[in-house]
């Protein structure tokens, strides 16, 4: 039972990281009506930005996070302006291929400047005690180092690391904040309006290009946060670090109903849990195959995804 809970919390933590990434895919799809396949590589850039910042002696973790978020936000907005905006009225296939091109470009720039040698990312919670330790038959201990634990002779039955706790908490805070931003602020309403009818939104005086830029900025900032959380939990950083999580998060967005914000959250979390549980109980080699199988089954039963609307697309 405790091991199941342990897999579940790890799955939840991984899933909330996927959800953060999936939000970027789904918002950009909802508002700019394009699949930004370079989104995964933004994560990788965010990882390197934080890594380089943290490897200097003077840079504290919070500053590294801010640097990473800033780099990704600027990068996302610049990519949109340079690569996607000139294709605003081009056929979707041209935009899709451009996005794949941008993805390779980012990977290759990283290869050139950072080499293919994996970097070991220093966790943002390095040195912190685990969030929770549970010993068989004892009440759980919070924020306690193993060496300080009153049961240090026993083997803990369940440990929830600080990274896991941080991923889940940070993601929840961000998701609540994003939901409030979209539904309560003028800029958020403008995003909803653009998602539904770009022309009509313009007639309201909404600057559609500005709104699309804002969407890319938010999506890329979320990717940077996801990058730091993910690299803290899985500390290997290479130029390809972003591609698999990017694809899985894309699956999560489709799974939840692409274009839907709650859909991306639910899809991401479910995907993380499915991945972890199938790795734990079935086989770690075929966990991706299981993931895609679940996606196919969901799409057969509900072609628009879990939260997808039938005709109209929502942000």
């Amino acid at each position: 039972m405790l091991s199941f809970i342990s897999y579940l919390t790890s799955g939840l933590s991984l899933g909330s990281i996927y959800a953060l990434i999936a939000l970027g895919y789904t918002m950009v799809y909802g508002i700019a009506k394009m699949l930004n396949f370079a989104h995964g590589d933004i994560i990788m850039v965010g990882g390197y930005a934080a890594f380089i910042a943290m490897s200097t002696s003077w840079c504290p973790v919070w500053l590294a996070l801010i640097i990473s978020v800033t780099v990704c936000t600027v990068l996302g907005v610049v990519i949109e302006k340079v690569a996607y905006r000139p294709l605003r009225s081009a056929p979707p296939l041209a935009v899709l291929i451009t996005a794949i091109g941008v993805s390779y470009l980012l990977q290759n720039i990283a290869l050139l400047t950072q080499t293919a040698t994996p970097k070991t990312f220093k966790s943002v919670a390095a040195g912190a005690p685990p969030f929770m330790i549970v010993y068989e038959g004892e009440p759980p201990l919070f924020f306690t180092r193993l060496s300080d634990s009153p049961y240090k002779n026993l083997t803990p039955a369940l440990t929830v690391s600080m990274e896991t706790f941080l991923s889940i908490t940070v993601s929840i805070v961000i998701m609540v904040g994003l939901t409030l931003f979209i539904n309560k602020t003028k800029a958020g309403k403008a995003m909803l309006a653009c998602a539904e009818d770009r022309g009509a939104a313009q007639l309201m005086g909404i600057n559609v290009n500005g709104t699309i830029s804002l969407t890319f900025a938010i999506g890329s900032a979320l990717a940077a946060v996801a990058a730091v959380l993910m690299c803290s939990a899985y500390p290997q950083l290479t130029p390809y670090t972003g591609s698999m999580p990017g694809i899985r998060a894309f699956v999560a967005a489709v799974f939840g109903g692409i274009g839907s914000i709650p859909g991306a959250m639910i899809g991401g979390i479910l995907l993380g849990i499915i991945e972890l549980l199938s790795k734990a109980y079935i086989s770690s080699q075929i966990s991706d195959a299981i993931l895609f199988l679940v996606l196919i089954v969901v799409l057969i039963i509900r072609p628009t995804g879990i939260m997808g609307k039938k005709i109209n697309e929502k942000v």
Partner: peptide, 12 residues
């Protein structure tokens, strides 16, 4: 401008 076909934001 009141556009042809109304174009209200149906979801809002």
């Amino acid at each position: 401008h009141v556009p042809e076909g109304r174009r209200v934001f149906a979801q809002l």
